[in-house]
Design a protein around this nucleic acid. Structure first.
Length: 580
RNA sequence: GGCGUGGUAGCUCAGUUGGUGAGAGCGCCGGAUUCAUAACCCGGAGGUCGGCGGUUCAAAUCCGCCCCACGCUACCA
């Protein structure tokens, strides 16, 4: 049995993420993790918060808190929201963990030993008032090209011309507006990605089964202009992982930290160690050390050869996962696991524009949970995942899709059969009758559909999986409509009993199949059916008879209340402006 | 500017190793049904497959040019 290592791009610490972030990484990763677990695979599903960098320091300052305290609080908030969305991480770690500190410094040391690190002395803008070096886009000024007075140091948003901070007229700090800026000399470490270009190129070439989105972005970076450029991996900041060469000091680099995009992917590995150190993993094999618990997922020399590693991320994260992080791993010369499959997503737009964290535009994860159960969001987001191109959230579409799919097709199916059974036979599966041609045909049809569903899920074709699942729900309604137990009951109660048993067994089957998409509703269905067996229907005929005659159940409450026009209009106006 | 992704029914999207009359869901119209959350089921209407040109017996699919939308463009993460 394949073991699945699954990671979601780690969300940045400085605030609550919006639904566009969710659908691009954590949610599809959770879908895949839940599915593989349901199929019986051993799964390690990891995510974490990405806690370093300038934005975190500034957000903490704005909140009036020490950055470590701010990050700890925000981590807990994000963890709570993740639980609210039923994201089934085996561990939700932190890139600021001691484990990541050690590993990041370890990788830097290995890369230095391999000659893949070079020191570069460069000139950067320093703000005396802010007491820090400013990343290019934290410098504002007048664009020398078009005269726009809020141009950023990396690019003018008005005329799109790319800029150097020193090009700006009347430059000022975007943090506090200070014009007390100066150019200072500072030394940084660069990862010599260019030295690994051919190796990375060949590796990407070998991934013919990856989404076009993933490979095309990687190829662009590899071949654009002069090819893959070396990348600075250190910053002049206080909050971060101190630059060290393994366990040794790095002369000349005192007071500097690693760049977040160097340490963030390494957190994928460190997170596994956090998971093991927290005692969440199995006990070590007899005679093995405790690190073997996580290393068997990550070290090919310690048993990770049979691991299939899948990463999920939005398209903006692709370069770091296809190039920088693999360069780090390959360059270390050690036997770390490289990613096997990268599932990347386009963007989800909100009502004609982009979701925007900085502008507070769209729906944020905490707001979403405050108005509707997680399953509503999970279903809509996954069934509309931006796989082939950007997709769009509108309240009308959301209302229509959720009402139709969840309330009408699935929820109503559960209602109609359980209530019918209760009224004619009582709250237990009725005795009598046997399968006829309709039931045999249904079993055949479902078997074919379930195998197709598995194929889409295995291939991480998210929207097609959702569509296939929905079609499986529809089949149940078609069956009831065709055999019409309310009619047969009048002339042949035994026949009706067999039909009702089939309907009730379908509920249990649907719960099992739907669990990766809508885990809470699925659990509710299993509870209502008093079902203890939630194993995957490898044998559909057997699954359709899992609940025997006489098995008691309860009629569940309405599983999915419909979204009313009034609610929709209310939310539409409430979330139209900025978050407040 | 360069690169990338997309432009297929009112809406959201499938579909290209070129070939039986171009598909799904929603919406709409009609029918059937009454177990059910005014739900379900069946049927129907609806499309110059972004535009122009080319290759071919044959193009949504291949080639060229153009238009439009979105994204990326390496110090935000």
């Amino acid at each position: 049995m394949t073991r699945h290592l699954i990671t979601s791009a780690i969300p940045y610490i400085n605030g609550i993420k919006h639904l566009g972030n969710l659908v691009g990484s954590q949610l599809p990763a959770d879908l895949f993790a839940r599915y593989q677990r349901a199929r019986g695979a051993e799964v390690l599903f990891l995510c974490a918060t990405d806690e370093h960098g300038t934005p975190a320091e500034l957000a903490a300052a704005k909140a009036g808190k020490p950055v470590a305290e701010y990050c700890a609080e925000m981590h807990e908030i994000q963890a709570e929201i993740a639980r609210g969305f039923a994201l089934s991480f085996d561990h939700f770690g932190r890139s600021s963990s001691p484990q990541n500190h050690r590993l990041t410094q370890h990788f830097a040391g290995r890369l230095a030993d391999a000659g893949l690190i070079r020191e570069v002395s460069e000139r950067q803008v320093y703000s005396n008032a802010d007491g820090r070096f400013l990343p290019d886009r934290y410098i504002e000024g007048t664009c020398p090209n078009c005269g726009y007075d809020k141009a950023r140091g990396d690019q003018c948003e008005n005329c799109t011309k790319q800029l150097d901070p020193t090009d700006l007229i009347n430059p000022r700090s975007a943090i506090g507006g200070s014009t007390d800026l100066e150019v200072r000399e500072t030394k940084h470490l660069y990862l010599r990605q260019s030295a690994l270009k051919d190796e990375l190129d060949a590796w990407i070439d070998s991934k013919s089964d990856w989404p076009v989105l993933t490979t095309s972005i990687a190829k662009k970076w590899l071949h654009d202009g002069d090819g893959l450029q070396d990348r600075g991996i250190t910053r002049d900041l206080d909050w971060g992982i101190p630059v060290k060469k393994g366990e040794d000091d790095w002369p000349g680099m005192e007071g500097k930290v690693f760049y977040v995009w160097f340490d963030a992917p390494i957190e994928y590995i460190a997170c596994a160690q956090e998971w093991a150190d927290a005692g969440k993993g199995p006990a070590p094999e007899p005679g093995a050390d405790k690190d073997s618990v996580w290393e068997r997922w990550w070290r090919t020399d310690r048993g990770a050869d049979d691991v299939r590693y899948t990463q999920f991320m939005g398209k903006d994260n692709v370069p770091f996962h296809t190039l920088s992080f693999p360069a780090t791993i390959i360059g270390s010369g050690e036997d770390w696991k490289l990613v096997d499959y990268i599932k990347s997503f386009n963007y989800l737009n909100y009502d004609g524009g982009q979701f925007s964290t900085s502008q507070g535009r769209g729906i944020f994860m905490d707001q979403a949970l405050s108005i509707l159960p997680a399953d509503y969001w999970r279903w809509w987001l996954l069934s509309h995942a931006p796989e082939s191109s950007d997709s769009e959230f509108t309240w009308e579409n959301f209302q229509a899709a959720v009402n139709k799919d969840l309330a009408d097709v699935l929820g109503n199916f559960v209602s109609r059969i359980t209530k019918f059974c209760r009224s004619k036979f009582g709250e237990a599966l009725p005795e009598g009758g046997a399968w006829g041609p309709e039931e045999e045909a249904l079993a055949d049809d479902l078997t074919a559909r379930i195998r197709a569903y598995e194929g889409f899920m295995d291939a991480i074709e998210v929207r097609k999986s959702a569509s296939a699942l929905r079609a499986i729900w529809v089949v149940g309604n078609e069956y009831l409509q065709t055999v019409a137990p309310w009619t047969t009951f009048k002339t042949d109660p035994d026949r009706a009993a067999a039909q009702v048993r089939m309907g009730l067994n379908l509920i249990r089957l649907y719960a099992v199949l739907s669990q990766p998409f809508i885990p809470e509703a699925s659990a509710g269905m299993l509870t209502a059916m008093n079902a203890t067996d939630a194993s995957w229907p490898d044998d559909v005929r057997a699954a359709l008879q899992a609940l025997p005659p006489g098995h008691g159940f309860t009629v569940p409450e309405v599983m999915f209340a419909k979204i009313t026009d009034e609610q929709r209009e209310d939310w539409q106006s409430r979330f139209a402006g900025t978050r407040g």
